[in-house]
């Protein structure tokens, strides 16, 4: 297990590729050079900062530090989930649903993966929790976001059909059956695609990282398979939870459609 440490010069050489891109943008007046520069600097600063923060947190022995970073990660992911929605729920409903789903599913999947599958010692070792939770949240965020987006769009567009079913005596979940099925399909199809092509089109990022860090590729594959199961499972559960939670928020206890709980369309 050995890996080649990167020096500042190595990073500068890699950045050269971006500088070539910038030069092309300037030569052809694409107007992208400044955006490129800002995005590249942002990426560098963010990742470097995360590296330092993780260094600090990995050095701590108290589970409280792990808990703190878990909460920060969930809050940031919940915020991002809401930002991605075109039709958002009003006020605290939006953040409530996003954060509750991510905390529940992300937390459960991560704890499950760590305690049952990886079982490091101590179990709260941030070296395992933080990267696994990060991957789980990133993937769950995408599937939740797709599910909610499709659900709210469908509810607005098919308002008349949903209300017709309600008027005929359907419960709220029956009335939403078509829209709900479409939302879950939209959220879960990309997960199936990712699993189907894993390792064929490209090596998954984590496996690549482990191989570059000197791990045995067969061992790296085992880790990647475990992570794929956890990520896909968590994303699927997250899509279910977000979509059903969304139906509950879009309706009330008397099974009425409550589109008034969506914020007005920004457009």
């Amino acid at each position: 297990m050995s890996y080649i440490e990167l020096s500042g010069t190595d990073l500068a050489l890699a950045a050269l590729l971006l500088i070539v891109n910038g030069a092309i943008s300037i030569a052809f007046r694409l107007g992208l050079a400044i955006s490129f520069g800002i995005a590249a600097v942002r990426m560098g600063v963010q990742l470097a900062a995360v590296g330092f923060v993780l260094n600090f947190i990995f050095a701590q022995t108290s589970p409280l530090w792990t808990l703190l970073i878990v909460f920060v990660m969930v809050l940031v992911a919940g915020y991002e989930l809401v930002q991605r929605q075109e039709r958002r729920f009003r006020s605290w409903f939006a953040y409530g649903l996003g954060n509750a789903t991510l905390l529940l599913v992300g937390g459960l999947a991560t704890v499950y993966a760590i305690v049952v599958v990886v079982h490091p010692s101590p179990w709260y070792a941030p070296r395992y929790i933080v990267p696994i939770l990060g991957m789980v949240l990133g993937n769950t965020l995408t599937s939740c976001s797709l599910a909610l987006q499709t659900l709210t769009e469908g509810a607005v567009r098919e308002r008349a059909a949903i209300e017709a079913r309600i008027a005929l005596g359907a419960t709220r979940t029956e009335a939403f059956a078509t829209v709900l099925r479409r939302a879950l399909n939209t959220a879960i199809t990309p997960l199936l695609n990712v699993m189907s092509v894993a390792g064929i089109v490209s090596l998954p990022g984590m496996m690549t990282g482990q191989i570059l860090a000197g791990a045995n590729p067969a061992e790296a594959a085992k880790y990647q398979i475990m992570i794929m199961f956890v990520l896909t499972g968590a994303s699927g559960l997250g899509a279910f939870a977000a979509a059903f939670g969304g139906v509950l928020l879009l309706t009330d206890a008397r099974h009425r459609l409550r589109l008034d709980r969506l914020a007005p369309s920004p457009a």
């Binding site: 098919e158 008349a160 017709a164 079913r165 008027a167 005596g169 206890a253 099974h255």
Partner: peptide, 18 residues
Amino acid sequence: APEWRRRVRYASAEPAWW
């Protein structure tokens, strides 16, 4: 509520279909 609407039926002027 669903039982109420099976007894008390609202029919819109433009019925919707799913």
